[in-house]
Design a protein around this nucleic acid. Structure first.
Length: 153
DNA sequence: GCCAACGTTGGC
DNA sequence: GCCAACGTTGGC
């Protein structure tokens, strides 16, 4: 089993939105970066655990946990010219972009702000904290996952 | 609101 | 294939 961290802007889609979603499940659409796409398409498996991270929020923070419940399939929002994530490069018979379904597991009783992660020796190697990081989907280790869960409670 | 860092685009 | 210009991300 692998462990991941996925970013979402809470004003667009938050951990609360996931908790309230039908079956507490949603499709993770809109990833338009090749490195992130490759993680989604090639490495995410059902049962993998994911830290749900709130980016562009005050404060930016890990907010909870979800898990992969459906492996990669074409991101259909790329096919829809009216969708903000539309990408004419992605064709139905040769999709460029993929998504997975995730299911709510828990919301942290205490969010874990990025600053707290920066100050934690066990977390300092995470790609999230690397200078200039813009990746929205990234792998983390089991010990990093466990440490964040411990802090978030 | 600012701006550094980064990925993508397009002219050559 | 290079690289300058541009748009976006996302912390601060």
């Amino acid at each position: 089993m692998k462990y991941w961290l996925m970013k979402s802007e809470p004003q667009v889609f938050s951990i609360d939105d996931l908790e309230k979603a039908k079956n507490q499940t949603t499709f993770w659409d809109g990833v338009r970066n090749y490195q992130a796409r490759n993680f989604i398409r090639d490495e995410m498996k059902v049962g993998d655990k994911v830290i749900f991270y709130h980016s562009n929020s005050e404060p930016p923070a890990a907010a909870g946990i979800c898990e992969i419940v459906k492996e990669a399939y074409p991101d259909f929002t790329a096919f829809d010219p009216d969708n903000p994530h539309f990408d004419p490069k992605s064709k139905i018979d040769s999709p460029a972009w993929f998504m997975v379904n995730v299911k709510f597991v828990k919301k942290f009783s205490t969010i874990v702000p990025i600053e707290e992660m920066r100050n934690n020796k066990k977390l300092i190697n995470m790609q999230l904290l690397k200078r200039g990081n813009r990746l929205s989907v990234m792998p983390i280790t089991k010990s990093e996952f466990d440490e964040i869960v411990k802090l978030g409670k």
